[in-house]
Design a protein around this nucleic acid. Structure first.
Length: 292
DNA sequence: ATCCAGGCTCCTG
DNA sequence: CAGGAGCATGGA
C-alpha cells in the first residue's frame, strides 16, 4: 500500500519524535522503518511504514495478508497517526508575524503532531504523566503494557497493544502499586477505563461535542483536570485548540524560546501565550520539540 | 540533599 | 474562591 504525503512533510522529524524514548513498547523504529501492531475489527496487523521516496509512504503488513476492505482502515490509521490531513502551511502562516516561532519552523519544518489514536491510551498516558518526569512516566507505561496489554510474537519479536480498559478495571491495586502507579493514578485509571467501557465517553461522542464541551466532559472525570483534558484533545481527538497551558514542559520551552532567566509563573505563561488564539496544539507541540 | 517533573483533588481560611 | 498540602518516585 502507498500513502501520498502532503507538503510539507518531514519523515525524519516524525522518526525523531517516535524514537524519543527507548522504553516505548507500542511501536519501534528500526532502520528508518516504523513498526506497530494495530487491531482492526479484532484482527491484529503488524504494519511497517517506510518512506521509499519523497511524496509517499510505503505501508506493508508483515504478519498477514490484508483483506481488501481492511486496507483503507490501515491507511486511515496512518493518516491520522501522523496527522497527514492537517494543513500545516496554514499554521505557519498563522504564526508568521511572531518572531519566536521563526527558528522553530525553520528547524522543524514539516513536523506533524503525532497522535495517540486510542482514547484509553491517550487518557491513561495523561494520567500517568501527571506530576512526574517523562522517563518515569515511560517506565510506568511500559510496566502496564507488559503486564496488562495483549501481545503477539512475530518473527521472534514481541509486539504489544495498549491494555484494554477491562484489563485495567480487573487489575489488582496491589499489583498496580508494584508497577509504580500511585494510589491516585490507580483510581483515576480505573475510573477512565470504566467510563470508556460503559460508553460514557468515546472518541466519536467527544468529537461530536466540539472542543469546549468535550473539554468539560473529560474534566468531569475524577483525575482529569484542564491539563489532561487538553492533552487528550490535542493528542488524540485532533482539536487544533487543544492547549495544555499548565504543562511544565511548555513552561520550560517558553523560558528557552523567550530567553527568560526563570521559569515563567502561570500568569506570565498566560501573558506570553495571549496571542495563541488558534493552532494552540501545534504551537505547543513545536515548543515541546524545541526542548529536544 | 533539595527541587522539580508533560497535575489533580481536597481541605482550609 | 485563592492558596496550600499530599501524593509517590526518579533524575539533576
Amino acid at each position: 500500500m502507498t500513502l501520498p504525503t502532503p507538503d510539507p512533510f518531514d519523515y525524519a522529524a516524525c522518526l525523531a519524535y517516535l524514537k524519543r524514548s527507548d522504553k516505548e513498547v507500542l511501536h519501534q523504529v528500526v532502520e528508518e522503518r516504523i513498526h506497530k501492531l494495530i487491531r482492526i475489527h479484532g484482527q491484529d496487523y503488524l504494519i511497517q511504514i517506510h518512506q521509499e521516496q519523497a511524496g509517499e509512504l510505503e505501508i506493508v503488513c508483515l504478519n498477514s495478508s490484508v483483506p481488501q476492505d481492511i486496507e483503507h482502515h490501515i491507511l486511515s490509521y496512518v493518516e491520522e497517526w501522523l496527522d497527514l490531513n492537517t494543513d500545516i502551511k496554514a499554521f505557519y502562516i498563522s504564526v508568521a508575524a511572531e518572531p519566536v516561532f521563526q527558528p522553530l519552523i525553520e528547524r522543524l519544518y514539516g513536523l506533524r503532531l503525532i497522535k495517540v489514536i486510542d482514547l484509553f491510551e491517550a487518557i491513561s498516558w495523561a494520567i500517568i504523566g501527571q506530576q512526574i518526569n517523562l522517563p518515569f512516566a515511560y517506565q510506568i507505561k511500559q510496566n502496564l503494557v507488559l503486564e496488562y496489554g495483549e501481545s503477539k510474537d512475530i518473527y521472534g519479536h514481541r509486539y504489544h497493544l495498549f491494555p484494554h480498559p477491562q484489563a485495567i478495571v480487573d487489575a489488582s491495586e496491589d499489583r498496580m502499586r508494584e508497577l509504580k502507579c500511585s494510589r491516585q493514578k490507580i483510581k483515576y485509571l480505573k475510573i477512565a477505563a470504566k467510563a470508556i467501557l460503559e460508553g460514557e465517553i468515546s472518541k466519536q461522542s467527544l468529537l461530536a461535542l466540539g472542543y469546549e464541551e468535550a473539554r468539560k466532559k473529560l474534566i468531569s472525570l475524577k483525575g482529569i483536570g484542564n491539563w489532561s483534558a487538553n492533552y487528550v484533545l490535542m493528542r488524540c481527538l485532533g482539536f487544533s485548540e487543544g492547549f495544555p497551558i499548565e504543562d511544565a514542559g511548555l513552561h520550560q520551552a517558553l523560558r528557552l524560546n523567550f530567553h527568560l532567566d526563570h521559569k515563567p509563573t502561570i500568569d506570565e505563561v498566560r501573558s506570553l501565550t495571549a496571542s495563541w488564539t488558534q493552532w494552540q496544539a501545534y504551537r505547543t507541540f513545536y515548543f515541546w520539540q524545541s526542548l529536544s
